[in-house]
Design a protein around this nucleic acid. Structure first.
Lengths: 265, 265
DNA sequence: AAATTGTATTTTATATATTGAATACCAATC
DNA sequence: GATTGGTATTCAATATATAAAATACAATTT
């Protein structure tokens, strides 16, 4: 879906990670897991190796190790590989231990009910991606749903503007990454940079139909410590709505509250 | 919890996996991930290495690779490692793609409502473990909760008796593994083997307070194909209850139904 | 039934991940 | 402010994971 130019980009990132790393098997394993995760059906050895630019025998070794560790299962008849339930266990442990994902839930529930919007709690990881770690859905008939665990590029939509505004990313990097973002209705670079400036002043960001046309997204930053952005609260609603002003303020103060909780232990 | 005799068992399984495997870094990575998952707080390099019987420099290489792959995060100040949200993404993909976890949910919901019991859908992985992949909770005031992703030894409780009965496990292996199981009120080996025989005949298994005292567990097997046991439906309730007979029949036919769906494509 | 084409798997020489010691760092304690 | 005990990290020798070719296997076509 995202990369249909498989031939050119297939191993670019992976090849780099393998070269750099002193444990290349792990990068290969991660790539295989993500590939299996994306795939609709179980995959054979050759397919996996080809897709990721790996030597089949190496891929086989990695797969066997992953099978032993119960992250991958293999059908003994067809020799096709797919993700195994073992990956659930890690996720559950993470969810249980993660402070933000636990304290954010009631906040999301309250906001989604009050304003009838879908609320997300996202975690910013490495200023490269954001991952949805908690959600509370609106009651309205038609609403958007974002599954927990979904991964997005860091700079997209309203949350992206927050990250750009508060993440201390050099302008040159912003400009470079901007070109790789996919929007329904892309803003011009000037508009985007301007909106980032505005976000710095207002303390929150808005995406009015850029990312998904017809959908308004509001995001407010949450800080792990005084100067490290770690999460964001995101409100998603269909179409333009009234009561937005109130929602923004509420969102902003909720985010500030959470920041206080995360900072002060 | 499960293994408090860390000193003796710490590296036993891992050491074996590393020796056997042609991609030992992956076994080490898995061990580190599971250790971090179990831990209540972030861990330092030394602690991790010591706990798993790894050389610190090797552990460092593995950890750095895991950080790059966003499965682990490291606090740059304290140099402590913990699980990162990346593990969620795999879990979500698994859940979305897994046929059983998707079709079982309405079945669990119906049963839990009808009989006011907590229902679980578990997946049997490698006849070594079972993993809870779906659940539906009872409405009664006090009920047990088993989180999705929880892992149990394959032979424990009612589900364990199902696996023992239908998993084609040699008697010698059963006897051997029995000794490592932890129950609140362990059955005698004779009783247990007898109950397994009974399970073979009845088609379902019951655990009356053995695993957790005061808790009754009923389990029925689900088959991926005519002769491979893959999942189970589990009903959990507090105390002895009436209407059990009805529940058993309903559970059994629901399990048979699911088997039919999984087999026939 | 033989040949072909596509798989998965084993094998073996070599490039490299692993190791254990050496070093660098940091925070207590003296 | 030097010393100690604990970290994380780098480094160079060597045990080993990896790659490419050889082999085995399975399914389809001739």
């Amino acid at each position: 879906m995202e990369n249909s130019n498989k031939k050119t980009t297939k191993d670019e990132r992976l090849a780099l990670a393998v070269k750099e790393s002193k444990a290349p098997a792990i990068s290969r394993a991660a790539a295989i897991l993500r590939l299996l995760g994306k795939s609709d059906s179980p995959l054979g050895l050759q397919t996996i190796a080809r897709e990721l630019g790996l030597v089949p025998s190496t891929a086989l070794n990695v797969l066997r190790a992953l099978v032993i560790e119960q992250f991958v299962s293999v059908d003994p008849d067809t020799k096709r590989y797919s993700l195994e339930a073992g990956v659930l266990t890690l996720a559950r442990q993470w969810l249980g231990r993660n402070q933000f994902s636990n304290i954010v839930q009631p906040v999301l529930d309250r906001l989604s009910h009050s304003y009838d919007v879908t609320m997300l709690g996202v975690q910013i990881v490495g200023l490269e991606h954001m991952i949805v770690v908690a959600s509370s859905e609106a009651t309205a008939n038609f609403q958007l749903r974002a599954q927990i665990g979904s991964r997005f590029p860091a700079l997209i939509s309203a949350t992206g503007r927050c990250i750009a505004a508060f993440g201390e990313i050099p302008r040159s990097v912003l400009v470079e990454k901007f070109s790789s973002l996919r929007w329904d209705e892309p803003p011009s670079m000037e508009d985007w940079l301007q909106q980032i400036e505005q976000t710095k002043q207002q303390g929150y960001a808005i995406d009015s139909g850029n990312y998904i046309s017809g959908v308004t997204v509001v995001a407010a930053p949450v800080w792990k410590s005084r100067d490290t952005l770690s999460h964001a609260l995101v409100a998603i609603s269909i179409g333009r709505r009234n009561g937005m002003e109130e929602l923004k303020n509420d969102l902003l103060s909720a985010a500030a509250n959470l920041s206080r909780q995360l900072c002060g232990e």
